[in-house]
Write a protein that binds this DNA or RNA. Structure first.
Lengths: 283, 283
DNA sequence: CGCTTCTTTGACTTTGTTCAATACATGTGG
DNA sequence: CCACATGTATTGAACAAAGTCAAAGAAGCG
């Protein structure tokens, strides 16, 4: 909560300039746009309080929420490297964001390695989150999608120090559905169904996760697993002999200069779209 | 095709060191893994010839292709910023890649701004592609997905100087389906259906795009459009008054230091997962 | 040349969508 | 402060789209 505005702990390089990043605080009321798709990319925005959604629309009027952004997170990363915003950003409730002008960020990042790496990690985090969504959308059932979504929200809240088992959703059923690739009716039905099973309690937008273990069991069915070798069970799939050699040689590069580093590697951490930037970034 | 191995046109900084990035060429036969999920992140790989898929698997055995990688593209970007590979990488056909060891890339990028920015753009490109997939998976029908996929392939080939209207797919129906969130049967049926309509010709893995305009019309239905203000048609949705002020002030930042730049902005380019890195990156 | 894998196609089932009606909150104005 | 209006949520029934199961035909590979 304190680590807001990208420059939060940038004092490591004692610049002071980095703190100047947050040029200005902007207040948005519920439903107000922060920027529109196609607007010149003038700034990134760090959410201070409130919630922002980023979204796009298709030619024929379908709509797609591409991201929800909670306090501590940066809005606009999906447009970095472009000249114009690639999505709309709209406040879901009364919200305060601080503006990080690109004209300040760019030159400053160019001469401040710590800041550059911070931006880099933020972008990497964005990519990770989007990929988690990719798998959610490609191979989860409606139930798994909603459960996974709820757990993401829950973990995001926990990372920010709030109750992770009882919370109020800031977005409508339609927005949830749009985000996880379902219709609002299906979302609503899944909510009811989970409540029937005693896994959660729902009353409109307030949700209580009653049986977290049960929920996690559902989500874990579709969780990415490091165990099986992958798709190809073809006969040729076992031609791993030379591959072994390749991997060994690749690994050799890692070991050559920093053998200790290789040893103290942790497990693959789970990706959570809503807990990424709030925590100190698990890398 | 010539611009391979990340350092392709890095001679701008005359380092020479950048060209040393491609430490080693690795040959893979069809079906061979390049790396496994969980392996220590030792290197990125640039595809020289052939095709690589990156993929993951869930606890209960479902499989998901998260990316196809063609000549000129980098494999492993989804794992940058982590200590271990976040997916499997497997050759779809006999393939040559060159290895870019992280131990070389990291320090070199740290002191070579041109290279750092190159890596940054590659990561940005990866994020863009993943987001294009996100919308594909969330709101396209089976037909739109396959058509969009085919057009991506086609444009990717065109960007690399090959025929964009006739080509041979390197991946199976199952792999296509896994990538675009469908079963292999549905993919096959959609192929047949498109052929029936005279939009394409298919014979197993060789595809000819007969009526590109027709195909594009299908894909455009679900193409992202900058026109409508977005989701919220709520009464409060028109509270754009202060937002206008916000946007104006945000835009002012852009104009302040580089007014000319703002003026020569191009349209939002289309995102194409398979033409991104081959072309010189549309930004 | 024979085996395996991949692709196509058919019949049927499941899942989620669509259309529609009702109920629930919230916030606004009388 | 209450009543009404509006957007939001729930639920039902019919429908459509894609998934599953199954079998047969075509390519590729050893």
């Amino acid at each position: 909560m304190a680590r807001v505005c990208l420059a939060g702990d940038c004092d490591s390089d004692g610049e002071g300039a980095a703190d100047g990043l947050a040029q200005r605080v902007i207040r948005l009321r519920k439903g107000e746009p922060l920027y529109l798709l196609g607007d010149p990319l003038a700034a990134l925005f760090a959410v201070r309080v409130g919630t922002v959604k980023t979204h796009v629309a298709t030619e024929d009027g379908r709509t797609q929420v591409v991201g929800f952004h909670f306090p501590g997170e940066v809005v606009g990363l999906d447009s970095i490297g472009r000249r114009q915003y690639a999505s709309y950003a709209t406040a879901l409730e009364d919200t305060k964001v601080c503006m990080i002008p690109m004209d300040v960020l760019r030159p400053l990042a160019a001469c401040t390695p710590a800041l550059a790496s911070r931006v880099f990690r933020a972008l990497d985090g964005y990519a990770q989150r989007t990929r988690a969504l990719q798998t959610l959308l490609a191979l989860m059932t409606a139930e798994e999608r909603l459960v996974t979504f709820l757990l993401w929200i829950s973990e995001g809240l926990a990372a920010r120090g709030f109750s992770s088992s009882e919370f109020i959703l800031r977005m409508s059923r339609e927005e949830i559905g749009s985000y996880i690739g379902l219709t609002l009716e299906t979302v609503s039905r899944q909510f009811s169904r989970l409540a029937e099973c005693g896994l959660i309690r729902v009353k409109h937008r307030s949700v209580a996760l009653v049986d977290k273990a049960g929920l996690r069991a559902i989500a874990d069915r579709s969780a990415i697993s490091p165990i099986p070798p992958g798709t190809n069970r073809r006969r040729g799939g076992e031609q791993r002999v030379p591959a072994q050699a390749v991997r060994t040689s690749a690994a050799a590069w890692a070991t050559r200069t920093q053998p200790a580093t290789a040893a103290m590697q942790a497990d693959n951490p789970k990706i959570n779209p809503f807990a990424w930037e709030a925590g100190n970034g698990q890398q």
